[in-house]
Amino acid sequence: MLDIVAVSDEERVYISNKIKNCDILLGCGDLSPGYLDFLMNILKPKISLMIYGNHDKKYFKNLYNVELTGFSKTYKGLEIIHQDIINLKNKLNINKNVYISGFSGAYSYGKKPFHFSEKDAKIFKRILGRKKAFKLIKDIDIIITHSPPGLENLFEKDISAFHKGSSIMANIYMKYFPKIWFYGHIHPRYTDQILNFRIHYKNKISYLLNSVPYKYVRYDEEKKEVVEIIGEEKKIKFKDIYF
C-alpha cells in the first residue's frame, strides 16, 4: 500500500497535525522551495517529485537554470518530472510497476515551462506515445499537472477558458486513463464548484483530484486501486463524469 500526499498552490503548516508520514510527496505547482522542504522534513517521504506552476518563475534568478528533469538545485531533494515518466518500482522497493508522469505550467500565455499552449501539450502527447509504442510503458498509474485537463462537463458554472484546461491534455487523460490525476491551479476557497471527480470510462474509474492545498491518497499498487482519499474538507464531494 502506497501513501501519497499531493500538494499545490496554498501552503498549510497544519498538515503536520493531520498526516505524519508518506511514501510519495507530489508537488503540483505554485509552492515555495521552503514549504516543500518543510513537508519533506515532517512527512519523510521515500521519494519526492514535482512539476512547476505558473507562479514558480519567481524562484529562479536565471531562467536558464530551470531544470525540466532530474533533481532540482532550487527545490532541493525534489525530482522534476516535467514530460518525464518514472517507474517507482525500484525506487520504492515494491513488486509492481507504478508509473508516474507529470507536466508543468498553467494553460495560458507566458514563459515555458510555467505556462503552456496546446502545441506544447501535443509534444507531451507524442513523448508518451513513443514510449508506449516502444513498450517502455504499458499503463500510467499517476499523472500530476498544474492545470486540470480540459475534459467535457467538468465544471457546472462558467469558468475562464484557461482554467478549463487543455483539450490535448484531455486527450491524454482518456488515452492513458490513469488511476489518479492530481492537479492544482483552481483554489477551492474561491469557488463553490465541485473540483474532485470520479471519471467513468469502459467500466473503469479514474480519480481527478484537486490538490489545493493537499490530498492524501492510499493506493493499492498490487490491485491498482484507490483505497482512501482525504483532503482538507471534512467530507470530499465528488462529481461523477461518464464517458
Score class of each variant (00 low, 15 high):
Glu11Phe: 13
Ile81Asn: 02
Tyr52Ser: 02
Lys119Ser: 15
Met174Asp: 10
Phe134His: 05
Ala161Leu: 13
Asp139Leu: 09
Met1His: 12
Ile42Glu: 12
Met50Asn: 02
Leu154Gly: 13
Glu222Val: 10
Leu68Arg: 13
Tyr216Lys: 09
His200Trp: 08
Ser206Ala: 09
Asp192Met: 02
Asn196Ser: 08
Val5Ile: 12
Phe116Thr: 08
Val227Glu: 12
His55Leu: 10
Tyr216Val: 04
Gly110Asn: 05
Glu11Trp: 11
Lys96Met: 11
Lys157Leu: 15
Gly184Leu: 04
Ala161Pro: 07
Ile100Cys: 01
Val217Trp: 09
Phe60Asp: 00
Leu25Gln: 10
Asn87His: 04
Glu232Tyr: 07
Pro149Asn: 07
Phe71Cys: 07
Lys175Pro: 04
Arg189Phe: 15
Ile142His: 11
Asp139Asn: 15
Lys91Cys: 11
Arg189Tyr: 13
Ile172Leu: 03
Lys73Gly: 11
Phe177Gln: 01
Ile24Ser: 03
Ile123His: 06
Glu152Ser: 15
Asn62Glu: 13
Glu232Ala: 01
Lys111Tyr: 12
Glu232His: 04
Tyr216Trp: 08
Asp84Gly: 05
Asn41Phe: 05
Lys58His: 01
Ile144Pro: 00
Phe177Ala: 01
Lys73Arg: 11
Tyr176Arg: 08
Ser211Phe: 03
Ile81Val: 10
Ile140Ala: 02
Ile81Trp: 01
Lys57Asn: 12
Tyr59Ile: 00
Lys138Val: 07
Tyr14Arg: 09
Phe243Val: 07
Lys76Gly: 09
Lys46Trp: 03
Phe177Cys: 05
Thr191Pro: 01
Pro188Leu: 06
Ser48Arg: 01
Asp56Ser: 02
Tyr59Gly: 14
Asp9Gln: 12
Tyr190Cys: 11
Asn90Asp: 15
Lys179Met: 08
Ile229Asp: 03
Ser104Ala: 03
Lys202Pro: 07
Leu49Ala: 03
His55Ile: 07
Ser206Gln: 04
Leu63Trp: 03
Lys122Ser: 14
Leu154Arg: 12
Met40Ile: 07
Leu88Ala: 03
Val212Gln: 10
His187Ile: 13
Ile51Ala: 03
His163Asp: 15
Gly102Arg: 01
Ala133Met: 11
Lys157His: 14
Leu151His: 12
Val226Lys: 05
Leu2Cys: 13
Lys46Val: 01
Pro188Glu: 04
Leu195Pro: 10
Thr69Lys: 03
Lys175Thr: 13
Cys22Val: 03
Leu26Ile: 14
Ala121Gln: 06
Ile168Glu: 15
Asn41Gln: 13
Asp9Trp: 06
Glu118Met: 10
Ile24Val: 07
Arg198Ser: 14
Lys234Gly: 11
Ser108Tyr: 05
Ile94Glu: 07
Phe60Leu: 07
Glu228Asn: 14
Leu209Asn: 04
Met40Phe: 05
Ile236Trp: 10
Leu25Tyr: 01
Tyr59Asp: 08
Ile42Thr: 15
Lys132Arg: 14
Asn196Arg: 06
Gly53Trp: 12
Tyr190Trp: 13
Lys164Glu: 14
Leu88Pro: 01
Tyr219Lys: 07
Ile205His: 08
Gly77Glu: 09
Glu221Lys: 06
Asp56Cys: 06
Lys237Gly: 03
Asn41Trp: 06
